[in-house]
Design a protein around this nucleic acid. Structure first.
Lengths: 201, 201
DNA sequence: CTCGATAGGTGTACGGCGTACACCTCGACC
DNA sequence: GGTCGAGGTGTACGCCGTACACCTATCGAG
C-alpha cells in the first residue's frame, strides 16, 4: 500500500501517485482520508524500519547506535526527513521510537527531568537528521573556491571557512564537509554533555 | 515592499498578498521574478533585524547573546523559521549573520576547522530556532495528563515523561515544557562542549 | 439462485495555486 | 509632441487536493 513511495519522490503526489499505480486519483481516497493521512502512513512505514531491538550495556553506545541506525534508515529515503519536519503531530511509529530512546536514557540512570531536557536538546537529531541551514551541495571544489574568493570581501570569515573546506576536499577526500562526520561530531558532543549532567545528578 | 508580511501569515500568498495590496496578482511579478524570490526578500528583511553590532569580551557570552537575539527576532515572526528551513540557498542577510557568528568564534580563539564543525553542530540553532519534532502545543495540563495515562500502556517511558511535564505545569507555572529554557539548555550544553574542544586545541 | 450490502474504482467538477503572455496607461525626458 | 520604460491589467494554462454521485465485482444470507 504505502510502499509505492520509493519510485516517486515526494513533492509529487496524489494525482501523480495515482497514475503511478494505474488508477484514478479519487481511488486513493477509499484508503486514506486525505493527503496528510497518506503521508503519515508512509512516514510510519519508513520509521518502522528502524531497528528497535533491545540492547544492553552502557547507555551511551546504545543510544548512539540507535540514533545512527535511525540516520541510516532516513538516509535511505531522502524525502523522509523533510516529510517528518513538516508534520506537527507525531505518528505512532515515531512515538514508539521516541519511547525506546527515552527508555534507554532512563535505564542509563537519567532522571525524568533530565531526559526531558536532553530530548529537547537533541531535537530532530534524535531521528538521525540535523537540518543543515543550507545544503553544501556537492559542487566541485574548484567552483567552490571561486565562489569563496568572490565573497571574501563581503563575508571574510565565511570565505575563510569555505576556502578551508574546499581545500580539504581537494587534498584528502572526505575530510572536508562530511555530513556523516559532522553529525557524529555534534551527537558525541551532546552525549558527552549529557554524561556530565548525569554524573552531576 | 516586503513589509506587508506581518499582516498575512505565510501559507497564504501571491494572489492573496496581491489582493491584500489592492492589486492584481501579476503586478507582483514586476518586482520579483517568482515566489521564491519574494520569500527570499521577506526572509532577508526579517534576518536583517537581528542586531549585529560588534561586541567585545569573552566569545561565549558574545555568541550566546547574539544567538538569543536572533531567537527573539525570529520569535517575533513565527512563520520565519519555517520559511528559512524550506530554503536551500542562503540569502545575503543570512550569510552576513553567519559571517558575524563565525567572526566571533574566530576572535575567540577557535581554529578554522573547529569553527566549521561547531557551526554544523549548532545547525539551525545558530539562528535561534530549534525545530522541535512535534509542537508541544499549549493544551491544558489536565487534558495532557489524560492523554499521557491513555498511552501509558503502549509507550510507558513517553507517558512517564509526559506526566511529569503535565504535573510540573500544574504546580509551578512555566517550569514544565518551557521552550526558551530548553533552547538555552541545549545552547549552553553545546557552548560548554565547544569551550572544552577549544582548550584541547 | 437470487438479493442486498459493501469494498473499491470512475468521472465530473470546483476552487485555489503559480505564472506565461499580450496588452494598456502614464509620467519623464529629448 | 514623440518615444520609452516602469508598472498595472486580463486572460489563460496546467497543476493541485478533494467533494459528490455513480458504477461494478464480490460474497454471505435467505
Amino acid at each position: 500500500m504505502a510502499l509505492a513511495d520509493e519510485a516517486g519522490l515526494d513533492g509529487l503526489s496524489m494525482r501523480r501517485l495515482a497514475t503511478e499505480l494505474g488508477v484514478v486519483p479519487m481511488a486513493l481516497y477509499k484508503h486514506v482520508a486525505n493527503k496528510d493521512e497518506l503521508l503519515d502512513g508512509i512516514i510510519d512505514a519508513v520509521v518502522s524500519e528502524i531497528d528497535l531491538a533491545p540492547v544492553d550495556g552502557d547507555w551511551k553506545p546504545a543510544i548512539r547506535g540507535r540514533i545512527l541506525a535511525a540516520r541510516q534508515t532516513l538516509l535511505r529515503h531522502p524525502w523522509a526527513a523533510g516529510a517528518i519536519e513538516a508534520r506537527r503531530a507525531p505518528t505512532p511509529a515515531v512515538l514508539a521510537y521516541m519511547d525506546s530512546i527515552i527508555g534507554l536514557f532512563r535505564a542509563g540512570g537519567f532522571g525524568v527531568d533530565l531526559v526531558h531536557h536532553v530530548i529537547h536538546a537533541l531535537g530532530s537529531r534524535v531521528l538521525g537528521f540535523s537540518q543543515e541551514l543550507f545544503d553544501d551541495s556537492p559542487t566541485d571544489p574548484d567552483a567552490q573556491e571561486k565562489a569563496a574568493h568572490a565573497m571574501a570581501g563581503t563575508y571574510p570569515w565565511l570565505a575563510e571557512m569555505a576556502l578551508r573546506v574546499a581545500h580539504d576536499e581537494k587534498t584528502v577526500v572526505g575530510s572536508g564537509c562530511d555530513d556523516q562526520f559532522e553529525f557524529e561530531f555534534a551527537l558525541d558532543l551532546l552525549l558527552d554533555g549529557f554524561e556530565r549532567l548525569r554524573q552531576a545528578g
